[in-house]
Design a protein around this nucleic acid. Structure first.
Lengths: 183, 183
DNA sequence: ATGTGCATGTAACTGGTTACATGATTCG
DNA sequence: CGAATCATGTAACCAGTTACATGCACAT
């Protein structure tokens, strides 16, 4: 699980300043997709980001409640995020890992986003082929089920990637050429 | 990540006796689906299973190589596996977690397998609804992409589950004329 | 000669969870 | 009257990875 909560949180702070509690709430709403880290990892991560000057913190006092500590990304933090985002996808990226990057797409240039999706497409296509081959050679019924399931998910993912890449491609073309095409 | 390698390994040993190295090779072939644990977790896990009398070990001597240590499941181990397998799915099971159980389907009764798939179906259906709703309320383009992606995967999974449940249902019906569950 | 496959293992580390503590406020 | 929401945090623990050590056989 090279998922590193660190950059996920940094990416959220890049979209807008927020507190640790806000981070939790937000990720909770996406928990099925990327899983929600516990407070026991969020707060220490924020402290670490602060110590490395990747974020700043401003305490907003409230009556009868602990102060909300609002974290904002710094220039150094934005640079670190940018560097991370522009690294190629690790060779065996999980769906969760890819989703994490997708959530941060707002921090990407459009070109980088499409690159990333193409990298992913290539990886999934390779795995799909491998799975299709494996299905025929496996005898155990459970393993077969698992492989078939994997095939199905892979092909759905490929379809989505192709469709979405197509849409983004069209949008970019419209901007570049400056023509509006009515559908 | 309540994925517990422990039961995955125990399940493999239930299918056939094998060595730690064999376990590794096998899981490596499925690494895209469930991820492959490292030797650094496999060997200690096997030792622990041995100490708890869930498996037995027989060393097969080889010339010029370390002996292969072949692990076999015990009655106690089989009982433990059975107990695990018959627990309901944890409320927020990841795709990986479900796949893991699917791989062990050989250790399930057919009835338990279909139950399990129905539990999964219900969970995914719920999440799908939530995602579809969320897509319309989210403004950030990256988050929207992630949610759409999630929707697509969820619907592919539902389709596969329904289709597979249908097939299994037919098989069971042939054996034991019963009712086909409506989806 | 260099690496890959076979085959075992250990120690240090990391990234996370679980469970706790604090304390006011509002809802059923 | 208890439970949930807001809001912070810490310490103990755990599962797993990384990097290492050993050592032979076989291919490039």
């Amino acid at each position: 699980m090279r998922t590193n909560i660190r950059y996920l949180i940094l990416g959220l702070l890049n979209q807008q300043p927020m507190s640790g509690y806000d981070v939790k709430r937000f990720l909770e709403s996406l928990s099925w997709l990327v899983g929600s880290p516990s407070f026991g990892s969020i707060y220490p991560t924020l402290r670490s980001l602060l110590q490395h000057d990747l974020v700043t913190m401003e305490a907003v006092l409230q009556e009868d409640k602990p102060p909300r500590k609002i974290y904002s990304i710094t220039a150094k933090g934005a640079a670190a995020l940018d560097a991370w985002v522009n690294k190629p996808l690790p060779s065996a990226t999980s769906m969760k890992g890819f989703l994490m990057r997708l959530i941060l797409a707002g921090s990407f240039s459009p070109a980088r986003l499409t690159d990333q999706m193409k990298e992913r497409r290539a990886q999934v296509a390779t795995q799909w082929e491998a799975l299709k081959q494996a299905v025929d050679t496996v005898q155990d019924p459970g393993q077969r089920l698992a492989l078939e399931y994997g095939c199905e998910i892979a092909s759905a993912e490929l379809a989505w990637l192709d469709q979405t890449l197509g849409q983004i491609g069209q949008q970019l073309t419209v901007e570049d050429v400056g023509t509006i095409v009515t559908p």
